[in-house]
């Protein structure tokens, strides 16, 4: 049946709604070949005189079926790339500008390049807002309650430099009382856990 491969590609995305499976280069190429074959077959049939085959039966329905299949394949490929890109964009806001290795290996080269460009465009935009080097839009996703917060370190992170120059050694399970704005990114990345009484 036409477009079965395209269906498999989309099902792959459906099963993995919030993670990015490895870019399926092989399947994308196979679908591309199916499209090319269908186009060639249609071109041959369309050029036959009056589009009737040797028995005088119209080839139009055949051409229409292939045409529908071409568009269906195209739609699936485009949707595959589009939805992956959307996921990737969300990741910039959830993970920050550096993605974990396990995710990076699943990206195609084009996707990696896109992510780098998006990150840098976003950074440029944020720097341009207001005075003083800009506004970091990725912090304060919820209304902050206090200037200083208590956090527990969840992993052996190592050295961490604060904006006033002082350096902290972050070991697993150590607790710290720090300015909120310094911690926010590490909290989002799961390095710190915010402790609330």
């Amino acid at each position: 049946m036409f477009c079965d491969k395209a269906h498999t590609l989309i099902k792959e995305l459906d099963r993995n709604r919030d993670i990015l499976p490895p870019y399926n280069n092989d399947l994308v190429n196979e679908i591309g070949k199916e499209i090319t074959t269908l186009i060639e077959q249609n071109q041959i049939d369309a050029q036959t005189n009056e589009t009737r085959n040797s028995e005088g039966v119209s080839l139009m329905p055949t051409i229409r079926v292939r045409h529908a299949a071409i568009h269906r394949n195209l739609r699936c490929i485009l949707a595959y790339h589009y939805n992956r890109l959307n996921s990737l964009r969300t990741m910039r806001w959830e993970f920050g500008s550096i993605l974990p290795v396990e995710i990076k290996v699943n990206l195609s080269t084009a996707e990696s390049n896109w992510f780098a460009k998006y990150s840098s465009t976003l950074a440029k935009y944020m720097r341009s807002l207001g005075e003083d080097g800009g506004v970091n839009l990725a912090v304060d996703m919820k209304p902050p309650k206090a200037l200083y917060i208590e956090v527990r370190c969840m992993v052996d992170y190592g050295r961490f430099e604060l904006s006033d120059g002082s350096v902290l050694l972050l070991k697993k399970n150590s607790r710290h009382y720090l300015p909120r704005c310094e911690c926010e990114e590490l909290i989002r990345q799961g390095v710190f856990q915010h402790i609330v009484n």
Binding site: E94, P100, Q189
Partner: peptide
């Protein structure tokens, strides 16, 4: 239930860790 507003790791990060 709560009386504070704890910040949390992003959802994707939590799920990623669990999967790992």
């Amino acid at each position: 239930v709560e009386s504070g507003v704890p910040l949390e790791a992003a959802n994707m990060v939590i799920n990623h860790r669990k999967r790992k």
